[in-house]
Design a protein around this nucleic acid. Structure first.
Length: 711
RNA sequence: GGGGGCGUGGCGGAACGGUAGACGCGCCCGACUCAAAAUCGGGUGAGCAUCGCUCUUGUGGGUUCGAUUCCCACCGCCCCCACCA
């Protein structure tokens, strides 16, 4: 709390945190504010009570001030391209122009619109205001007032989701009775109110160019509004919007210019006359940072009698949450902390102030916890800059993609603020990001849609059926979920096979980044492998060391398997490929299982590479072998390339690119000799009859391919 | 609608442009056992047939001596965003 609040103070001081009216989901029946996930189809999912949008005074964080840096600095990161792209899309930078439209017959009354296509200004045949736009009330013609009011009220009731979810939804809207003046040609165009324009993007008002925008085109068709072509793209714009490039037409100022030049020209023209300007617009919005919840960091601020803001002094931190018996919001809808009357009032410099009763969201702590890990006990600062300089930034961050545009963007923002404050020395918090895939599970569902627990299901021939009733069920691979009855409890696996087996199986399942289904039988296979490792060293009957273990020389085949395993494991850790090393270790163990002499040194190296995968087992065997220290303490074994080489190699023989034979040959046999050997092979001779070899492709120690032609 | 990703045996998955299917699961056979489990050994892509051949990495093309791998188009599935002007 203390240091999160400390950081928040810095944000307030820098103007990065501010109070504003922000929309919340308000449930009148419950008297509470609801989180996004608690609302569906306009009702509170738990009770079915209707939910409406309500504006409340909220803390906002000015993440938009960092939009450009958040965008640019993505280039510094070793992150999956897909995540970078998601962040780019989320930030949503677009270049365009702000254009001012005056309202006709109302001197001094005007509104701005944002457009990425100022070149299409001559094609603007109406304007649209979002239902929430502040001008709606003022400009609506008395005759249209009832209709407009009803429309706005309906839009206000709907959640964002309802308004935007159905993209194929029909366009709706109402005419206000007012007109705007198109700044380039002075034409009067009607002003509509429609919910396809969002108050949350741009200015909440647009110019509609139906000929060159699909949404406007759909709207024009619904309401019979005129469509004027201003970019010639060789299509009939009455039938379909043309959003591609072309040459400006019907646009006296820019006729004949291509889109690029036309944009620049029009924008400059508007700018000279004070009617418009270049504008970079972002989808990213400031971050609504307060919650009406009990749990969460309180804001380190209070309000003076005159309502002005007061920051609590640093030595007043942490502000902790008061104890309450009742964690619900107050009857009149204020946050739960408002119930703590004794806590709410606070003296600041002799003034009787009232504390902020909102709390911070769960994100707050997650935005900088990694810094605290570097210096958990510091009581002067969130993190000591020297320690941060030593440890930071985070070298490798492993997490799911679900954080791509939430946590990972928020944390980058906070880190940049702390960079500006001088607390951290890098622009970015997480240098390398790796998204591990989700583990899915098989679920079983009958025709009626009812789910069965895997234990209730058995396999009869080709079909799965419910054991008790014989009802056929269909198997599918889905996210683990209680309602689908397919959740695998890791603790049960630990009970059955041990933590090592769980851990190794999770690595063995497949590439870490891939989503893949859990299969308990696979964990059992890994368990078997680990038991074999155990028996390699320990005689199960007596508990004594296996007599085969001793100070023997390393046989060629076993050494090869071992060094292959060391190589794969070492490279796998660097590249986060953790599944194939397990296979190589299995191969070593399979070979070692049959051996009557097992060199202690080989086991030492093997246990060292096994240790990150199966630490309990590795350390136990390490000790039993009487090896010094711990397996995990190193040194990490190195592989000898010479050990990987075989004296006799198997060479694939292809004729016309098709495999016709394989043969054993001494390693590094000169190409000519190898080719001669190949051509003498009985299987090859048959194919050479009546043919001429036109080309011999020789891949040393691997393959020979003979290219033939008739004659 | 936009962006990203993935399609390989019955299943999870391996394969620097070079013998497709490593390793594991499952299944089959054998050993041990009175029996079962556990364990150990062997087999296991499909088909034709038995020196072997043909087919096979979602489908269709292309590049190449050679393509699961590179390029193009299509089909299917998954994830993220979505009336963003």
């Amino acid at each position: 709390y203390r240091w999160t609040q400390w950081i928040f103070r810095k944000m307030v001081e820098r103007g990065l945190a501010y109070l504003a009216e922000g929309p919340v989901h308000w449930c009148p029946a419950q008297g509470t504010v609801l989180a996004n996930e608690e609302v569906q189809d306009g009702v509170y999912v738990e009770t079915g009570d209707p939910v409406e949008r309500r504006m409340m005074r909220q803390w906002m964080l000015r993440i938009t001030a960092y939009a450009d840096r958040l965008l640019e600095d993505l280039d510094l990161l070793d992150w999956p391209e897909s995540v970078k792209e998601m962040q780019r899309n989320w930030i949503g930078r677009s270049e365009g122009a702000m254009v001012t439209f005056a309202v006709a017959d109302r001197p001094g009354c005007a509104f701005e619109v944002f457009t990425t296509r100022p070149d299409t200004l001559y094609g603007a045949t109406w304007c649209v205001l979002a239902p929430e736009h502040p001008l709606v009330d003022g400009i609506t013609h008395p005759e249209r007032e009832a209709e407009v009011r009803a429309y706005v009220a309906r839009a206000r009731r709907q959640t964002d989701q309802e308004r935007t979810a159905a993209a194929e939804r029909e366009k709706t809207g109402v005419f206000t009775g007012a007109y705007a003046v198109n700044p380039v040609n002075g034409e009067r165009i009607p002003i509509w109110v429609a919910d396809y324009v969002l108050i949350t993007y741009g200015t909440g008002a647009i110019m509609a160019v139906p000929a060159h925008d699909e949404r406007d085109h759909a709207f024009a068709r619904t309401f019979g509004l005129p469509i004027v072509e201003v970019v010639s793209g060789g299509r009939d714009v009455q039938a379909e919007a043309w959003t591609g490039g072309g040459v400006a037409v019907n646009s006296p100022l820019i006729d004949g210019l291509a889109v690029r030049e036309a944009k620049a020209h029009i924008t400059a023209w508007l700018e000279e006359r004070g009617l418009g300007r270049v504008k970079v617009q972002y989808k990213l919005r400031d971050w609504l940072f307060s919650r009406q919840r009990y749990w969460g960091e309180p804001f380190p601020v209070a309000f003076a009698p005159d309502q002005s803001l007061r920051l609590l002094p640093e030595d007043a931190l942490p502000v902790t949450i008061p104890e309450l018996d009742d964690f619900r919001p107050t009857e009149d809808g204020r946050p739960p902390l408002a119930r703590a009357s004794g806590w709410v009032e606070v003296d600041l410099d002799g003034e009787r102030c009232v504390r902020e009763t909102n709390t911070m969201p769960q994100w707050a702590g997650s935005c900088w916890y990694y810094l605290r890990y570097m210096d958990p006990h510091d009581d002067r600062l969130p993190v000591d800059p020297e320690r941060e300089a030593y440890w930071g930034p985070v070298d490798l961050y492993i997490g799911g993609v679900e954080h791509a545009v939430t946590h990972l963007l928020y944390a980058r923002f906070w880190h940049k603020v702390l960079y500006d404050v001088g607390l951290v020395h890098t622009k970015e918090p997480f240098q390398r990001l790796f998204n591990q895939g989700m583990i899915l599970a098989f679920s079983y569902r009958d025709e009626g849609g009812r789910y069965y627990h895997p234990d209730e299901v058995e396999q009869r021939g080709d079909v799965s059926v419910v054991r008790e009733t014989g009802v056929p069920v269909e198997a599918q691979i889905e996210k683990m979920s209680k309602s689908k009855r397919n959740v695998v409890d890791p603790l049960e696996i630990v009970d059955r096979y041990g933590a090592d087996a769980l851990r190794v199986y999770e690595m063995f399942m497949g590439p870490l980044e891939q989503v893949k289904p859990w299969q308990t039988s696979g964990a059992q296979g890994v368990h078997r492998f680990l038991q074999r490792v155990w028996r390699l060293v320990v005689d199960e009957e007596t508990g004594a060391l296996q007599p085969a273990v001793g100070d023997h020389p390393l046989p060629r085949d076993l050494g090869r398997a071992l060094h292959l395993a060391i190589k794969e494991t070492t490279e796998g850790i660097e590249g986060i490929r953790l599944n194939t090393p397990v296979s190589r270790m299995m191969e070593f163990v399979n070979l070692a299982t049959g051996a009557d002499r097992l060199p202690r040194e080989a086991m030492r190296a093997f246990l060292a590479i096994l240790a990150p995968y199966a630490p309990h087992l590795a350390e136990e065997l390490w000790e039993r072998l009487g090896l010094p220290g711990r397996a995990a303490d190193g040194p990490w074994p190195t592989w000898d390339p010479a050990m990987l080489i075989e004296d006799l190699v198997e060479v694939a023989v292809q004729v016309q690119g098709k495999l016709r034979a394989t043969l054993q040959a001494p390693r590094d046999l000169p190409a000519a000799e190898l080719a001669a050997l190949v051509k003498a092979h009985p299987n090859v001779v048959r194919y050479l009859e009546g043919m001429t070899v036109v080309r011999e492709v020789v891949v040393p120690n691997r393959l020979v391919n003979l290219v033939l032609k008739a004659g």
